[in-house]
């Protein structure tokens, strides 16, 4: 795990595709642990209680997330975990949603402007689930919400997506935009890197 995490740095975006029969929460737990050890600020975008799902699954194997150490933007759902700095909704119009999200996270990014911020977006599939078979809406989503996440230099973004709940076209579009793609099944595999492989 550590060897994989060592490969990532600021300005990169990692799509974490997982099989829901596997244990993505273990990858999340280890990644949190790794970046907290390095004192990097962590922001979690918790879409529809995915943080709660991960937390409950971890509890069953005796692990506890350091929720007091993570800043959270809550996106729908009911279970409030971590230090929530604001709430948005996937039901909002995309441009309005993007503007509200920026306003909420700005103070967090300003407070840590000299450090690389690590952002975990959990439950991406639930955001796109209602419109993932509508190519026009999906494209608007990529343009307005998701691709802007790729650009910033001092942010490392992990987008967790449940592969079985998303249509293949949407998944491939997401893979194309990211610098790295990881697959979690029984083990963790990097399947896309930005370097040219000879």
């Amino acid at each position: 795990m550590r060897k994989i995490l060592e490969k990532f740095g600021g300005g990169e975006s990692v799509l974490v595709e997982y099989n829901p029969l596997g244990h993505p929460e273990m990858f999340f737990y280890r990644a949190l642990e790794y970046y907290l050890e390095r004192s990097l600020p962590i922001l979690v975008v918790d879409i529809m209680d995915t943080l709660h799902i991960f937390n409950e699954h971890l509890k069953l194997v005796g692990l506890h997330l350091p929720l007091e150490k993570i800043t959270v933007v809550k996106e729908d759902g009911r279970i409030r975990l971590g230090n929530i700095i604001g709430e948005v909704s996937s039901k909002e119009e995309f441009s309005y949603h993007a503007a509200r999200y920026s306003k909420i996270v700005k103070p967090f990014f300003m407070a840590h402007k000299d450090k690389t911020k690590v952002i975990f977006v959990l439950g991406v599939e639930k955001f796109i689930y209602p419109f993932q078979h509508d190519p026009r809406t999906l494209e608007r989503y990529f343009e307005t919400i998701e691709r802007p996440l790729v650009a910033p230099e001092n942010k490392l973004t992990f987008l967790f997506i449940n592969r079985d709940a998303v249509n293949p076209r949407a998944l491939k579009s997401m893979e194309a935009d990211k610098s790295h793609v990881i697959e979690i099944d029984e083990d963790v595999k990097i399947v896309k890197v930005p370097e040219v492989i000879q």
């Binding site: 829901p20 799902i53 599939e125 639930k126 079985d164």
Partner: peptide
């Protein structure tokens, strides 16, 4: 629907 199974598998602690 296949994607519904996928989303419920994610919530489940056991399948």
């Amino acid at each position: 629907e296949g994607e519904f199974i996928g989303i419920m598998r994610d919530v489940a602690t056991r399948v």
